[in-house]
């Protein structure tokens, strides 16, 4: 699938730099992707690969000293870069919603749950207090909270993590957004609740035909939920493609390593297949391909030059020697 004028969100060469002008640290480096209506885009990568920063950048939430640049940042037909602060807030508030990692801190502890949901409805849709309350109860019911009539009077500290995340989802869908950004929505929850929350998210996404950007480091989750996948490493996109293709035959060594590190692929072995090393930080970015110190197939060319992203539209890879169907590098 390629981007068109009808695309919900188009991001072209988005970069986010921190640090000084002379010695910038690019937390996000020339990232391009797009989200269609009713589509689930999975963004995967290790901690520190720039997943969250990209989503914050496109919501305009990167503050000084961070610098955001992009060739194109378009939501439907609106260019998000040229908008003034107020118009941008209006658009993002009405049509884009966000769900965060830690449900325990993403609700305001000073207000009741109902109060917070009703506030979101009031700002974007209005209506009398009674209507808003009815809508809030209805939303809580949609996200599967039992006894919503009494729950709307609860304070966040009286809810469990899973319940709080459900409330967050209720708030996020309160104004019928076209695009929902879920930034590791299940990381802070335990496994049984994770499954319920994801199921709920996907159900609502299908019902409301929203575009969903699912940011996560849980590959199994992406394999199941996403239509298309973007794999990020050290602020760059290393591979994109339809979820089924990527998981059947990854082309980038990093994607392959991520999949090998799933517990399922190490069954019967003593240790998990971990990719050695960590994502390079601000001061230890290597020359050439950013993965070269950790890549099992590294060559001299990888250490000297940086590969460009190439491949057919919708299935791109940023590697000199993309892996073939059998998972071996093509030299």
């Amino acid at each position: 699938m390629t981007e068109t004028d009808k695309s919900l969100l188009v991001v072209n060469n988005l970069s986010v730099a921190f640090g000084t002008k002379d010695n910038p640290f690019k937390a996000v480096d020339r990232v391009s992707f797009h989200v269609e209506q009713g589509e689930v885009l999975g963004i995967v990568g290790e901690s520190g690969s720039g997943k969250s920063v990209s989503s914050l950048a496109l919501m305009g939430l990167i503050d000084f000293p961070g610098r955001v640049t992009a060739d194109e940042l378009r939501f439907k037909t609106t260019d998000l870069q040229t908008l003034n602060e107020k118009a941008r807030r209006k658009i993002t508030g009405d049509e884009i919603s966000m769900i965060f990692q830690d449900p325990m801190t993403s609700l305001n502890p000073s207000y009741t749950v109902g109060n917070q949901i009703m506030e979101a409805i009031e700002v974007h849709q209005g209506g009398s207090k009674k209507e808003r309350q009815a809508k809030a109860i209805d939303l809580l019911r949609q996200v599967g909270i039992p006894a919503p009539e009494s729950r709307i009077n609860n304070y966040p500290h009286q809810l469990s993590g899973g319940m709080s995340q459900r409330v967050m989802i209720a708030m996020a869908i309160a104004c019928d957004p076209k695009l929902l950004i879920a930034d590791e929505p299940t990381t802070a929850l335990d496994v049984t609740i994770q499954a319920q929350i994801i199921e709920l998210l996907l159900k609502l996404q299908r019902e409301k035909q929203m575009g969903l950007m699912l940011i996560t480091h849980d590959l199994a989750l992406v394999a199941e939920a996403a239509d298309r996948v973007v794999v990020m490493y050290a602020g760059q996109i290393v591979e994109t493609g339809p979820a089924s293709d990527i998981f059947k035959a990854p082309k980038h060594p990093y994607t392959q390593a991520l999949m090998n590190s799933l517990p399922e692929s190490s069954e019967g072995k003593d240790r998990l297949n971990a990719l050695p090393g960590v994502v390079p930080g601000a001061n230890d970015r290597p020359q050439g391909c950013l993965l070269n110190p950790r890549c099992p197939y590294v060559t001299d060319r990888c250490r000297a030059e940086e590969p460009e992203q190439y491949g057919p539209r919708g299935r791109q890879v940023k590697c000199f020697y993309p892996l073939d169907e059998a998972g071996r590098p093509t030299v």
Binding site: L61, R89, T92, S106, V123, H124, M168, M171
Partner: peptide, 13 residues
């Protein structure tokens, strides 16, 4: 904290 960011996303001034 996330709730402040979430309010910013919702368009709070």
């Amino acid at each position: 904290k996330d709730y402040v960011i979430s309010s910013r996303v919702a368009g709070a001034g």
